[in-house]
Computed example of a mutant assay.
Amino acid sequence: MTEGVEESHLVFDRVAEEYDAARPHYPEGLYVALQDLSGVRLAGARVVDVGAGTGISTRGMLDRGARVLAVDRAARMLSVLRARTSCGVLLSDGNELPFRDGVADLVTYAQSWHWLDPTLSVAEAVRVLRRGGAVAGWWNTVDAGRADWLAAYHVRLAESCDGYVGPALPGWSMPPIAEAMGDAGLDVAETWVGWTRTVLLDDFLTDLRSHSYVARLDTGEAGELVARERAELAKVFADGRLTVPMRVYLATGRTR
């Protein structure tokens, strides 16, 4: 699926190193909830990780014993993944998976499903699942309601970036993957997992550069935005270490 003028995989390829260096991991509670809601134990499971990017979710599932095949359209993102991750890697489109029917226990979208066609992607996921398998999608997001500085930060981003997506937008919510799963005939479950991220200011700003609405800016505009935010955030965190309230939204769809 295209987003605006430039396709998402081309945007993220420009910031692959920043993405890998500074995007947050997923907390242990996410993987516990994933197994509980999906009914699939990660240990020994065959997982197709769609939109794997640089492998943050891929490594999390590998560390818990899964056999993971990472799929993405972004060639540079996958090259970063290959450099530090031992698993199968495939440059391919999540809307048209190049697998035969019934090969996976779990098809996952970590921070990625919203870039795909909502109907085609889930239909493809269901097709490649074995009986008793599940589809799962999850997103890390800030919990801006728990910190005034964080809410103000997102208001500034919304004012500075035309393509901003996040909690400062009226009516903003998680992508409707649960609805798409239900439409596909899956048994849907949802949950939130709260956690707290401790991160250095430099890494927090590198993370900012990896978001599509900043990556699409020209170099000068992005640099000015990051410099402004460095100054604003340094007023709150004089020691350069941020405590960021986070939560992960998880939705799973089990085959019947």
Rank of each mutant, 00 (worst) to 15 (best):
E3Y: 14
V142T: 13
S92G: 14
Q111G: 06
V68M: 08
L69Y: 04
G166F: 03
G44F: 12
R46A: 15
A134M: 08
D143W: 13
G194I: 00
V142G: 11
A152K: 14
K235Y: 00
A22Y: 12
G44K: 09
L186F: 12
V193W: 09
C87Y: 07
P24D: 05
E221Y: 00
F204E: 07
H154A: 05
W195A: 10
E232F: 08
N95A: 12
W192Q: 10
V226C: 02
E6I: 15
D143R: 14
L34P: 05
I177K: 06
V32T: 15
A110K: 10
W149A: 10
W138K: 07
V103R: 13
L120F: 03
G39R: 03
R59A: 10
P118R: 12
A231S: 11
M61V: 02
A74I: 05
R100D: 14
S121T: 11
L78A: 04
S57R: 01
E6M: 08
P24Y: 03
S86R: 15
E7C: 06
S8Y: 09
L208Y: 04
S160W: 04
T252S: 14
D203N: 03
D183C: 06
Q35D: 01
P27H: 08
W139D: 11
Y19K: 07
T58E: 02
R209Y: 01
L205T: 06
T219L: 09
P98F: 11
M1L: 11
E159V: 01
V50A: 07
R84H: 13
V199C: 06
V89S: 04
E17F: 08
Y153M: 09
W172E: 08
P175A: 10
E7W: 00
L200I: 00
T119L: 12
L69D: 01
R209W: 03
W192M: 12
L150P: 01
G39N: 08
G65E: 05
W113Q: 09
T243C: 04
C161I: 00
E229Q: 15
S112L: 04
A104N: 02
A21W: 06
D202G: 14
A33N: 07
W113M: 12
G253N: 13
L242H: 04
A251D: 10
A83M: 03
D63I: 00
V71C: 13
G55C: 03
Y213M: 07
R67E: 13
S38K: 06
L225W: 03
D183I: 06
T108H: 10
G166C: 06
A227T: 07
E229I: 01
A123Q: 15
V126D: 11
P245Q: 09
G132N: 11
A215Y: 01
A66G: 04
A222D: 00
H9E: 07
G133E: 01
A189H: 14
V107H: 10
V107Q: 10
T108S: 14
A238W: 05
G240A: 09
P176K: 10
L42D: 02
L217W: 02
M61W: 03
R76F: 00
R23F: 06
V214R: 01
R209F: 00
A180S: 15
W113D: 01
L81S: 04
N140P: 07
A33E: 15
A125D: 08
S112V: 05
G240Y: 04
D72P: 05
R67N: 11
L42Y: 02
D105F: 02
L150E: 02
A21I: 00
L205H: 09
Y26P: 04
L242M: 09
L91C: 11
A52P: 02
A251E: 09
A43M: 00
P118M: 07
L201Y: 05
R67K: 13
